Simulated assay, not measured.
Amino acid sequence: MNHQQPLPEDLVTDRSTSVHDIPGRTLRALSTSDLAGIDITLADVVETVEQAYRTLAAGASDNPRKLTVRPADGHSVGYAMLGRDGSREVVAVKTSYKHGLDKDRGDQHYYTALTLYDDISGLPLAMMDCGRIGALRTPAVSALLARACARPGARTALVIGTGTQGRLALPFLLTTLPDLDRLLLAGSHPDGIAAVRTELHRHFPDRDVELVTDLRAAATQADIVVATAGGHTAAAVEVDWLAPGALAVLVGHGLAPSTLHRADRVIATSEAQMQVTGTDMADAEGHLRPVDAELPRIVAGAAVGRRTADERIFGYNSGLVVTDIALGHRFAQLALAQGRGTRVPLWQ
């Protein structure tokens, strides 16, 4: 991959707001509360993620496959992801660790962190909790998938699940597809349903969501289905439930394997990542359907998302570290402008 070729003008990130506050051997640590206090628009998040995809498609970024470790009994899992954003010229490492997979969710522990380094000065930029970054990045990717692959004139969106990803799915969809006029929600947890409504009203005060109890009937009516439910969900939309031209996006759980294997077209953020993390969608022989196109190339105009109005499309949303890097760098810029974070003399 040749990183010496100049990027197109629209991919060059404005670096005038440097995230360096002191040279040398200190690191700015950004906690969960530091990041929670930063206001960022949904449109800003979408634009940042989209630019990261364009830079990757242009061959100017690196996004190697993640490394995974887990003990034999499966009680924990750890991931490490290294990447480089070629437009921001930032190198970063993201780590994720979850403990207690054999226990109820309330007894589990989950930590994720992102460390950024400036690849021009060679200096460290920041280390931050990556929870909010992932919570914003993932629904932004679903919204980009919807913009690229929803059928023309799409009006109805169905979200399955009311967890972290379900709560921001609809606001992000409305950001990229403002003509959506019917918003459906399939969920069973009262607190989660209330949280979905709260997030929707916070970003779009004049919009509301319809709670559905018949998942099959709702899926039949939807132009876009975004499945964000947890692993214990009983929801499993089959391909025959989907209307002609529907887009089904898998983020967590809620879609049956038939939506992948019998789709007219399969789009993924990364085919390599799908082969690693999408094994629960494998067929009886343990195989996954090949991917027809990847989202970064579609966003960059190098590949086609939808070909016809009536084809059913399966979209696989898995995280790419280059999007975490871009969004993390954006948060670091905003944090520095607001004087947030703690200077840590890590190497002194």
Rank of each mutant, 00 (worst) to 15 (best):
A143P: 01
L123W: 11
L184F: 10
A143S: 06
A157C: 10
T138A: 00
T48Q: 02
V141S: 00
G131Y: 04
A135D: 07
A300D: 09
D14R: 03
E199K: 09
A217H: 04
F314S: 01
V90Q: 03
G166C: 09
Q333W: 04
L185M: 04
L336A: 15
C149F: 02
A60T: 12
R216Q: 10
E311A: 09
L35Q: 01
L185K: 06
V299R: 05
V19E: 12
L82D: 14
V239S: 07
T95Y: 06
A332E: 10
L174N: 03
V212K: 09
T48S: 03
L174I: 03
L11Y: 07
T32N: 05
A222P: 03
A43L: 10
W241C: 05
S142C: 09
S188Q: 14
Q348F: 10
D107I: 02
A229R: 05
V49Q: 00
L170H: 15
G83N: 07
V226E: 03
A57R: 06
R137L: 01
A236W: 00
D104A: 12
T269N: 00
E50S: 13
I325K: 06
Y79N: 02
S76H: 07
D179T: 15
H109V: 13
G245V: 08
C149R: 04
L144Q: 00
T55L: 09
R105A: 05
W347C: 14
A227S: 10
R262Y: 05
V159G: 08
G192E: 07
L327I: 05
A268M: 01
H232W: 12
A222V: 03
L123H: 14
L336V: 15
A309S: 12
L320G: 00
D14V: 05
S61Q: 03
L114C: 07
G187H: 10
A227T: 04
L144N: 00
L288M: 08
P171L: 05
